[in-house]
Every structure is written in C-alpha cells, then in structure tokens.
C-alpha cells in the first residue's frame, strides 16, 4: 500500500502490517513493542514513508490558534543556548539538554520555606478551599463568576431564590476554579456522586471536559469544591453538574442534571 517494499522485501502480510504501524504512529504514536516491530519491518522497506504523518499533522495543526507564552519563549531560548547544534548537524549523538523548568527566585523560595516553617511552628492549618477561592478571586484578571441555575432534580432542596444555590469561579489562565454550593443535598458516595463538566468554546460542545467527581457532605451551610479539570480549558462557557454512579463516568447520559452555570 503506502510503504514501499524493497525488491525481495517484506511479504504482503508484513507490508500490510507496516502500513498499519505507520498509520498508528501518525494517529496515536507507538509503544515500545510496536516501535521495535516497525523498525524491524522498515529494515526490509526502501521507504520509511512519512506520508501518514504529514496528512495527520496537517489535520492536527489546522485548529492551532494559541500564542507561545513569553516566559516559555525565554526558557526555549535558554535551551537553545545549551543545545549542541554542531553535533546535531553532523548527525552524531547530541548530548541531551535537560529542558530548564521555570525557576523561582531564591528569595521567593526562601520566603515560601520561611512561611511553611512559621505555619508549621504555629500549627496553622492548610488553606481551605474557601481560602483558595478567595485568593483566586483576588488575583485572577480573567475571572469568570457565574451563578448556578437550578434544574429539575431531586438532589436540590427548595430555596427561596434561584441565585441562592451558589456559584462558580474559574480562570482560564490559571486553569483553576471553585464551586460554591447551597441547597445541593448530601450524597451517599457508595450510591452516587456529583460530577462537573466544563464546556469549552475551543472544543466541540459534544465533548465537555471532565471537571472532577465530588461529594457534598451532610450538614448545613455552604460547601466549596475545587474544580479539577483533566484537560486544558481555553475558554469555559458552561458548567454542568450531573449525578453519576460512584467514581463518575466517561460518558454521561445527563439523565440527572441538577445545576447549570452559563457565562
């Protein structure tokens, strides 16, 4: 097919397998065993063939639209300054450069260490989710703050006004957010759990990002829950709470959707 067997090269079966591996490499990458198999098959092929990679890359790159963060650019320039271009140009082994991670100034590290020591000495507890929420509200320039809109679900208590169910704060830049809940009933984690979904303007709306599974403990008052997204959210537009089986789900049927918050 697309791989080019050398004369007297791979069998039709090997040629087909080579084609599959080249396609898989372009789509999802290969594991160690598959890589070894590809290398073995390529030894019998006259053409390494990057055609699949080129097509896959063209499609993958089509939606790219972000800008390189300035601080990351500086780190890349530092990496380049240490990179042995002469060795790479000569095709010889390049001494690996360990990419520089973001470095914190010494005084910042000392201040943090001193703070940790002081809070340890004073027995100060770790910041609560409410403390962290307030810190985010105070620091984020791009803060999104939206109120929950109650839906028809038995997990909700009757409250006098809709806005009383709490709110969501979220920062796209910090990839951090918190939810406040009032009137959302305590759940039995052995029976069901709440799960957050974040809809991103930069993603297909059919595939919201999983924002984490959480519980509401019994007791009166307000509960603050941190958002734990497992994929980047470029521009959050809608937050949805569903009721799911313990551990959450990958695919939600949205049969129980107590709260929504739209920006």
């Amino acid at each position: 097919m697309n791989a080019t067997p050398a004369s007297g090269g791979p069998s039709p079966h090997d040629a087909q397998r080579l084609d599959e591996l080249l396609a898989d490499r372009a789509l999802w990458g290969l594991d160690a065993a598959e890589t070894a198999e590809l290398e073995r098959l390529l030894a019998g092929s006259a053409d390494a063939d990057e055609g699949y990679d080129l097509v896959a890359t063209t499609l993958a790159a089509a939606g790219a639209s972000e800008s390189l963060p300035p601080l990351l650019r500086e780190r890349l320039l530092d990496d380049a300054a240490e990179f042995d271009f002469a060795a790479a140009r000569g095709g010889s082994a390049v001494t690996p450069v360990t990419p520089r991670r973001a470095e914190w100034p010494v005084y910042t590290m000392l201040a943090i260490a001193a703070g940790l020591l002081l809070s340890f000495w004073m027995g100060r507890p770790a910041p609560s989710p409410l403390d962290n929420r307030q810190a985010l509200v105070a620091s984020a320039d791009d803060l999104v703050e939206v109120a929950w809109a109650p839906q028809d679900d038995p997990s909700l208590e009757e409250l006098p006004e809709e806005a009383a169910y709490g709110d969501v704060v979220w920062s796209d830049a910090a990839q951090q957010g918190y939810m406040r809940f009032r009137g959302l009933k305590a759940n039995d984690p052995a029976v069901e759990q709440y799960q957050l979904w974040v809809f991103d303007a930069e993603r297909d709306e059919r595939y919201p990002v999983d924002g984490g599974v959480f519980n509401i403990p019994a007791g009166e008052g307000e509960h603050v829950v941190p958002i734990r997204t497992t994929l980047p959210v470029t521009k959050a537009t809608l937050f949805a709470i569903t009721v799911e089986k313990p551990g959450g789900v990958v695919v939600s049927d949205r049969s129980r959707l107590p709260l929504l918050a739209s920006r």
Partner: peptide, 22 residues
C-alpha cells in the same frame, strides 16, 4: 504558537504543556 497549541491538546496542566513544548 503552533507547537504550544498542539501540546495544550494533550496536557491538562499548563506546566506539563510547557515541558512538552521544550
């Protein structure tokens, strides 16, 4: 920007995406 955008599709934490870009 192109490489950063590609990395952001795969890594939830910006710090991980930055490492990947490097």
């Amino acid at each position: 920007g192109l490489v950063w955008s590609l990395a952001r599709r795969y890594f939830a934490r910006p710090a991980d995406a930055e490492d990947a870009v490097q």
